[in-house]
Design a protein around this nucleic acid. Structure first.
Lengths: 344, 344
DNA sequence: GAAACTACCGAAATGCTTTTCGGTACGGTA
DNA sequence: TACCGTACCGAAAAGCATTTCGGTAGTTTC
């Protein structure tokens, strides 16, 4: 009943020696013919390739990896439950090479360092060529250590150890970008509602905002407001902010969720966005940013590029290239939507 | 500079023969000692294990896979860009075994069947033990075919081919569950606002809703409304629905996003939720469902369990157990929040 | 004291591919 | 005719762990 489709040999997958036998050559010749090595007569090569196709032979990557020491696999070790950051990074890593050239083991440690160790060990046992560690926040995280026989790159969450290479979005530049955009939109009485102050992201973004404001001779209308990264907090905080500063004309939020909450409150209070008050989010979480009324201007961390860069660094390190160390801050970009510029 | 931490041998990773040499035994004995086989004197075993630990030996899973034919890896082939469904399924698959026992290759085909073929080939080349195919909608998708030498299970999106095994959430039961809950909340004038009618999910859920209503001697106050799975549509549709049927007291939505839009409009119109109108979502996308005012009652597809089941089936098939075929509908569950029951 | 076990250990094959290097056959040259 | 170069091909080792099976030493039994 099985295998009616292809002319596959007996039970198991076809091996190189099957091909060789069918083509009437040695295993060595078959290998050379298939891999485009020279030292093979054209006619022989054709015969081998035909045989290989006939039994739909695919080389066993395990055996191959055993020889050349490269498996063409990368481990992605994450604690990003939501998959919010890890998926674009994964896609970027896949893009760094052709589809199918490199495969990615995705391991979710769920914030548990024991589980992380298990996964790490499993990855090394599988002889991955490298490891990318993805955190769910931009706060520095403990290093995996340096007795790891393959290159390790930290993405999004940098490593605490400056000897590691870390890639993280430039939140401070993001803050500046946000404030500069507000100013460019003619706003001068700007408030800042962000998330958990224990997060580096909250701090860095706030610093950037203040830098840009003071560069323009401005300052925040009120102290930055910090609490959760939630819509609830956005609603509550904006109500407070407006009560104390009714003349606010721009609110920069620490995340798109917070911004959604802010939009809700502004609507309840009858304030027009962006007419009376312009609002910006952070992270550019599409589904959130484009579902709101009006759609949210936001700062995008370009995570896919970050993933691509991380994967590239891993393989550069394998080539023996020095990829450097320390934390590198990757550029972010401004995505303009209706919450700061009236619809066209 | 390198390898200051562990006492690793020379440059490369430790191999079994390193252990054997250090312990003064043969490779065979070292293998038996480490793997708990008998035929090894206790003292010898201790000596080998000590040696293995000293040079932090980890068996090469590639070589191991070459022998016993099992690699302990599974391929997860998806087109779920958002990672909305694939991440819980991935976590479930990991859970099906201990952390690190099985590793998962995650491949994103991005809706491109060419890319899917590439990934599939790469996975087979890596000798995965099985493949789980995850779609981003519950509509049947083309089968990968049957000339695949490893078990394949379709998750979320079932296969068009009844010879394949597919696991998908029971949307029809979900629709019934939703309607029954509405009825239990005392609602009798119930509307249905769903998403793209081309989606099986939209149809199945609608069928379930109608079944439960007619079982209770009720029917929908208006024809089901279908368009996009967006907040925008939820807002527009609910405005229409209420204009035509001002006495509506319950709205079942095809997704949490649609429900968010519905909540927005109800708020604008001054209707109290759940006092005047109860609202339900679908999918239980936490971040959406808990960020709203009030929080959304929703139907949860229990995707993590679905992933666990899919992985279990794959390995059962490997054990030679008949896992059956056709589409199996997995139970969903009701998550009650403030949008149908007033806060306690 | 010789025969029969028992308990351990090791050589070698296995799984699959790649690569090196030695070998064969052919045509050409002296 | 004898020798050499070239073009192909194949045997074998390497890469790593597992398993089978044969062998050695020590112990027991008659």
């Amino acid at each position: 009943m099985a295998d009616t489709g292809s002319a596959s040999v007996s039970g198991r997958a076809a091996t190189l020696s099957d091909v060789a036998k069918l083509a009437g050559v040695s295993i060595a010749t078959a290998s050379k013919a298939i891999n485009g090595r020279d030292q093979v007569a054209p006619a022989t090569r054709r015969r081998v390739i035909a045989a290989a196709e006939k039994i739909s032979f695919t080389p066993n990557e395990l055996a191959r990896g055993l020889i050349n020491g490269r498996t063409g696999t990368v481990g992605l070790l994450t604690s990003d439950l939501e998959g919010r950051f890890v998926i674009p990074i994964l896609m970027g890593a896949e893009d760094a090479f052709g589809a199918g050239k490199v495969n990615v083991f995705l391991c979710d440690a769920r914030g548990d360092s024991i589980r992380e160790q298990h996964h790490l060990k499993a990855l090394l046992t599988r002889r991955v060529d490298g490891i990318i560690v993805v955190g769910r926040q931009t706060d520095p995280r403990p290093s995996l250590g340096h007795d790891i026989p393959v290159p390790v790159v930290y993405a999004y969450a940098p490593s605490e150890d400056p000897a590691d290479l870390s890639l993280t979005p430039d939140n401070r530049a993001g803050g500046r970008l946000a404030a500069e955009h507000m100013i460019a939109c003619g706003r001068t009485r700007i408030g800042l509602i962000s998330g958990d102050p224990a997060y580096a992201a909250a701090q860095d973004r706030a610093v950037g905002v203040r830098e840009a404001l003071s560069a323009a001779g401005l300052e925040l209308v009120d102290a930055p407001m910090h609490s959760d990264w939630t819509e609830h907090w956005g609603r509550d905080a904006s109500a407070m902010l407006l009560r104390r500063n009714p003349d606010v004309d721009g609110i920069i939020c620490g995340s798109d969720q917070v911004a959604r909450g802010v939009l809700d409150t502004l609507r309840d209070l009858g304030r027009n966005v962006p007419g009376d008050v312009a609002v910006m989010g952070f992270d550019n979480w599409e589904i959130f940013a484009t579902g709101s009324r009006p759609e949210l201007t936001s700062i995008d961390a370009n995570l896919q590029k970050l993933g691509r860069t991380a994967a590239t660094r891993v393989f550069e390190a394998l080539e023996g290239i020095d990829i450097g160390s320390g934390t590198q801050y990757l550029p972010v970009r401004l995505i303009i939507r209706g919450s700061t510029i009236p619809r066209r």
